[in-house]
Structure formats: structure tokens, C-alpha cells
């Protein structure tokens, strides 16, 4: 255990990608922070917003193209149904580890006391409104406000 003054006390996690594998690392880190008693803010920006948009949050998919670590050629990855198949497989493995679906995870992270924010610039760019987002979202804030709420925090970009 690190000495008390060296312990991380607050994190601000930025989620900028909208694929399943792009969203989960940030969610797991945010939830893990709260489990350790660390304050957590989560800032959703660009395609990461899909994780908190009511219509989309349950439908995030694994990207099967342009990712060499998928170990399938991109030409196969573009075939219809490949992304859906990879998504089903990943979700099944996550369920085994008790990792919740995105909507349930967002609710848990919110109930654990983390703050969830949508990036104003992207919200405007995508023409989204407050009612497009799930109830757990605390606010739509500018990058300046994000830095304000992040005072004293470690900032993690995903």
C-alpha cells in the first residue's frame, strides 16, 4: 500500500471513442476508482457520447476493421455480421466476469457517486439535446468547466 500522501484521490476520465472496446476501459477505470474510494469524473466527448445517448448506449459494437489485434484481416472484418458476431462474443466473455452492459454500468457508476459529463462542443456539433442523454448524465459542460471540475485530479484520456 502506498503512503497516504502518494495515494490517488481523484481522477477525471475522458472517453472519446464510441466502439464497445473504446468505451469499456474508461468505464471500468471510473467504477474501479469509486470502489477504491477515489473521486471520479467521466467526460464523454466525440463518439464516446454514444455511451450516454439513450438510443445508442445499448447498441455499441466492437470495431472489426482497422484493428490488427483482432487477428482477422480487415477484408474479413468488413463482411456483414462480423462486427455483430465479435460484439456478441465479447459481451459473453464480459458477462462471465460480471462486467455489466453499458447502460447498467453507467447507472452503477453514477450511483457510486461519480459525475458524468457530456462535452458541449461535441453535443453542439452532433445537434444533440439534454433529453437525448440518459438521466445519469449530470451536465453538459465546456472543456473549461471540465478542467475546473478536474482540479486536483489525474486526467486519463481513453
Amino acid at each position: 500500500m502506498p503512503a497516504n500522501e502518494d495515494r490517488i484521490k481523484k481522477v477525471s476520465i475522458i472517453i472519446s471513442k464510441g466502439s464497445l472496446e473504446g468505451v469499456y476501459p474508461g468505464l471500468i477505470m471510473a467504477n474501479g476508482a469509486r470502489m477504491e474510494g477515489i473521486d471520479a469524473n467521466v467526460f464523454f466527448t466525440f463518439f464516446g457520447l454514444d455511451a450516454i445517448v439513450k438510443k445508442r448506449m445499448k447498441k455499441l459494437k466492437v470495431a472489426t476493421v482497422g484493428n490488427p489485434a483482432m487477428h482477422i484481416p480487415s477484408l474479413i472484418g468488413i463482411l456483414p455480421g462480423m462486427s455483430a458476431l465479435a460484439t456478441i462474443m465479447m459481451k459473453r466473455e464480459m458477462e462471465k466476469l460480471d462486467i455489466p452492459p453499458v447502460d447498467e454500468f453507467i447507472e452503477m457508476i453514477h450511483d457510486a457517486g461519480a459525475k458524468l459529463y457530456a462535452c458541449k462542443a461535441t453535443v453542439d456539433m452532433f445537434h444533440l439535446k439534454r433529453e437525448d442523454f440518459c438521466d445519469e448524465v449530470d451536465d453538459i459542460i465546456t472543456v473549461g468547466q471540465f478542467y475546473e471540475v478536474s482540479a486536483g485530479a489525474q486526467i486519463i484520456f481513453t
Partner: peptide, 16 residues
Amino acid sequence: IRRLKNTGGIPVKELY
């Protein structure tokens, strides 16, 4: 925590 919530019936907020 998820199991405590879903099977144990203890809400996350309450747990914290």
C-alpha cells in the same frame, strides 16, 4: 458490487 445489487438486493447507492 453488481452481484450485491442484482442478487443481494442492495442498491449501489446504499452500499456506498
